[in-house]
Simulated scan of single mutants.
Amino acid sequence: MTGRSPAAGAGAYELPNGRGITCVSPAEAKVLWAEATADGLYAKAATALRPGDTVLDVGANIGIVSLMFGWAVPGLRVVAVEPAPATFACLESNLRRHLPESVSVCSAVSDRAGHRTFTYYPKSTGNSGLFADQRADDENTRIFLRNSGIPEEYIGEMVSGLHRGIDMTVRTLTVSDLIRQHALHRIDLLKIDVERAEHLVLAGVEPDHWPLIGHVVAEVHDEKGRLAEIRHLLEGRGFTVGISQDPKLAGTDLYELAARRTAGARPADEGVGRTL
């Protein structure tokens, strides 16, 4: 997720489309919806989905992107994964209410099953993660706000305390664990938004499971050459990779990555059954 403005209390929120959701912060939910529905990474991914497709939403937060996908393309199978108890409770409630056939899983996704320390930001839940970095998150948020036209005199106050975290231990699963546990015979879209743990999510895909994945969209923090590393990994697995950056994030290390199987090949074309 990108930089957020300070949250203003938990509760219910009515989305611009008139549907009600449960959220940790109505202010943050408003921003999440704007990001999900803007002409960007997720809206473009939604245009490639069709009824019956399977979406694995890793780093689902309260489920805004899962909901957008489900409403845009009725009949999807959605498995949404989120580790933080407060955001997971909202995710579970929202999917049960609006996408009752979907599945919510309380876990982080990493390169191995087990447990890890997770830093939760109560005032900026979308920036929480296994590798939270308060200084870097503050700076990215300052740049995002500045690029959004917020006057400089207000930015310091808006960022102050935004990334004060709470450490907790969360369960971890791999993508391959999720494939087995939920009998995912294909993943038409793997969406990843996990704040610096993108490489671990992809490392948790076992070789036999790569042919099941047709499309990957991810927010990537380009630290220590990670963007090039992930691009190389996906290209080696048969994907054509595109990279872009939201103008509001210019000057940050945040990039959007979209990867599709070369020449438009989908998992079903590789001999993987479509019936779930």
Rank of each mutant, 00 (worst) to 15 (best):
V216W: 04
V216A: 09
I155V: 15
F118W: 07
V217T: 14
A108C: 14
S128C: 05
T141G: 09
A218Y: 04
Y154W: 11
T141V: 09
D177W: 05
M168P: 06
Y121A: 12
E152W: 01
F118K: 03
K224P: 02
I213R: 00
H232G: 09
S148G: 13
L190D: 00
I187P: 02
I187K: 08
R116T: 10
E152I: 01
V175H: 06
E219C: 03
L178S: 04
P100H: 07
F131W: 15
G214R: 06
T174G: 12
V159M: 01
A108D: 10
S176C: 10
V217P: 04
I179K: 05
I213F: 02
V217C: 08
S102W: 00
Y120I: 07
V194A: 12
G126Y: 13
W210E: 05
T174L: 06
Y120E: 14
T174K: 06
P207H: 11
I192H: 07
L162R: 10
L184M: 15
A218R: 00
P122I: 04
H185G: 12
L145S: 03
R164D: 15
E223I: 09
V194M: 07
L233E: 09
P122Y: 08
C106S: 14
R171Y: 06
P211N: 04
L189P: 00
A218L: 01
N140C: 14
P207M: 12
G225T: 03
N140G: 15
T125M: 13
G156L: 00
E152C: 02
R186P: 03
M158F: 05
N127I: 09
G114Q: 14
D208I: 13
P151H: 01
T141S: 12
R171S: 13
F118P: 02
H182L: 10
E235I: 08
I192E: 06
H209Q: 15
D111V: 02
E195G: 07
R135S: 15
V217K: 06
L212A: 09
L189F: 01
D193A: 04
P211I: 02
H221T: 10
G225W: 02
D177V: 10
H199R: 09
V201E: 01
L162W: 07
I166P: 09
L227K: 02
D138H: 11
E229Q: 15
L234Y: 01
Q134R: 15
R180Q: 11
G225P: 03
R171W: 02
Y121N: 15
Q181V: 04
L234K: 03
L178A: 02
R142S: 00
I213Q: 03
T119V: 15
V159R: 02
L233D: 03
A136M: 13
G129Q: 13
T125F: 06
W210A: 00
R116H: 09
L233M: 10
V159N: 03
G156W: 00
R116C: 06
H115I: 09
E157A: 15
E101H: 14
